[in-house]
Amino acid sequence: DLSALRVEEVQNVINAMQKILECPICLELIKEPVSTKCDHIFCKFCMLKLLNQKKGPSQCPLCKNDITKRSLQESTRFSQLVEELLKIICAFQLDTGLEYANSYNFAKKENNSPEHLKDEVSIIQSMGYRNRAKRLLQSEPENPSLQETSLSVQLSNLGTVRTLRTKQRIQPQRTSVYIELGSDSSEDTVNKATYCSVGDQELLQITPQGTRDEISLDSAKKAACEFSETDVTNTEHHQPSNNDLNTTEKRAAERHPEKYQGSSVSNLHVEPCGTNTHASSLQHENSSLLLTKDRMNVEKAEF
């Protein structure tokens, strides 16, 4: 173990290094160091905050020279020094078990990766560091076993998940096959086929009936047209017969005018059967003409 005197000496050296690497504005270890034209180094955030307070150039807090945003430059070497100082402080805390008085939040800088452990060898070769390295080497064999167990647990979990997924996939297939086998029997399929065939026959029977009705309507229309044509021909046949009657009536009127007047009046009210309204109107006109002729003949006879 380190003596108290040596611990104090190391602590004083760390404090001196820390004062050199402090920012003059925030009085902390410089984060993202930036250098000016006057070779003074500050935190990048502190300098941008200072420049944004005034429009135009501002003055350096140490030498009062003008500073602009374009004049600022990043210093990589200074950032490396800060990183190495942080590593020294971490090693000091691990070796002594004491917390550094002016320690900052170094938890963000710590890294437990194997590459980081290899890099620590180049920091300080001390008894405390050696003991700590031995402890780490002793704890390393235990870690692979834990990793193997965790991997086995994960693989077993994956296997159970896969088996569950396969079961879920197989179950719908089985149910679907069961439904297909038990849903419709052979008799049901035959009945469905016969039902479809009967429906098709009914459709075939319905369509000819409609065509037959249309044919019957067409035949009825044709018969009505033929009947009207026969009526017209009958009226045409009746007209010459009426003319013959008129000639006979004229002759009778010349011989017996008194008797014919009474008979002509009675004939006005008689309509021949089986004739249309057109034929009756023609008869009325003929009878009126005959009456006028008879009157003329009677007057001539009187004179």
Results as ranks from 00 to 15, higher is better:
D1V: 06
S3H: 12
L5I: 09
V7N: 02
V7E: 01
E9S: 03
Q11C: 13
Q11S: 05
A16V: 02
A16N: 12
C26I: 00
L27A: 01
E28W: 00
L29A: 07
I30M: 00
P33H: 04
T36I: 01
I41W: 15
L48Y: 08
L48I: 10
L51V: 06
N52D: 12
N52R: 03
K54G: 02
P57N: 13
Q59R: 03
C63T: 02
K64E: 03
D66I: 02
I67N: 04
T68G: 02
K69R: 04
R70G: 13
R70H: 05
R70V: 11
E74R: 12
S79N: 05
Q80V: 13
L81M: 04
I88F: 11
I89H: 09
C90S: 13
A107D: 02
K108W: 03
K118H: 12
I123P: 10
M127V: 11
R130H: 13
R135D: 07
Q138N: 08
E140C: 05
N143A: 13
S145M: 04
S145H: 11
S145C: 12
Q147C: 05
E148W: 02
L151H: 07
S152T: 07
Q154V: 05
Q154G: 13
L155S: 13
S156A: 08
N157T: 06
G159D: 07
T160S: 15
R162V: 01
T163S: 12
T163E: 14
T163N: 09
T166S: 11
S185F: 04
D200F: 04
L203D: 09
L203P: 15
P208D: 04
G210A: 09
D213F: 10
S216E: 14
S216H: 13
L217S: 11
L217E: 06
S219D: 12
S219R: 14
A223H: 06
C225T: 02
F227E: 11
T230A: 12
T230R: 14
N234S: 06
P240L: 13
N243I: 05
L245K: 03
E249T: 04
E249S: 02
R255V: 13
H256L: 10
H256N: 11
Q261T: 11
S263I: 05
S264I: 02
S264G: 11
V265C: 10
S266Y: 11
N267G: 14
C273Q: 07
L282V: 01
Q283A: 01
E285C: 14
R295H: 11
R295I: 12
N297M: 05
V298A: 06
